[in-house]
């Protein structure tokens, strides 16, 4: 039978183990071994961005990463890791209020990319938002309401002045 290797991943703050073949993508392992189905697979060649997760806070394509190769201690954040007990984050709420999603398939990747952008650049202007999201394809919205939503979420990412 096919040989598997036991790996440990730090996902959304939890240490999880899985038995994987070396060739299994991080996206497939998150989805099919760990049950984190919010990470979506759209192209398996790193173009569409649906499978975007955060590695140590930075967006990455989980379809182009072998789960076995994720280094120890790298913090993986999936869309499930964005969720808070009290409900949606201000970014998620803004996306809803601005109708920044239709079919919702690209949405988890959009949310994570936009979250990483605003964490880094809470003042990102429309041009920067569009540029940062340009690696996340959406076929439904024409992007405008996504961009509006991300812009509207900026205040939530501004650091309070001491």
């Amino acid at each position: 039978m096919v040989e598997t290797t036991r790996i440990e991943l730090l996902v959304n703050g939890e240490r999880l183990t899985a038995d994987v073949e070396p060739r299994w993508s991080l996206a497939d392992v998150l989805r099919h071994q760990l049950g984190l189905l919010g990470t979506h697979v759209g192209c398996e060649q790193g173009v569409c961005g649906a499978c975007t997760v955060l590695l140590n806070g930075e967006p990455a394509r989980s379809c182009l990463i072998f789960a076995v190769a994720v280094a120890d201690g790298v913090a993986i954040t999936t869309i499930e890791g964005m969720n808070r007990a009290e409900g949606m984050t201000p970014l998620q709420t803004a996306l809803r209020e601005h109708h920044g999603l239709q079919c919702g398939f690209c949405t988890p990747g959009m949310v994570l990319t936009a979250h990483a952008l605003l964490t880094r650049e809470p003042e990102a202007d429309e041009g920067r938002i569009r540029e940062a999201l340009s690696g996340n394809l959406c076929r439904c919205t024409g992007y405008q309401f996504i961009v509006d939503a991300v812009a509207a979420a900026r205040p939530a990412y501004r650091k309070e002045e001491p």
Binding site: G46, G49, T52, L55, E58, P59, A60, R61, L64, I65, T113, L117, A132, S134, G135
Partner: peptide, 9 residues
């Protein structure tokens, strides 16, 4: 080069 997520890796 590519997009942000690609440049990160």
């Amino acid at each position: 080069i590519g997009h942000w997520a690609v440049r990160n890796r």
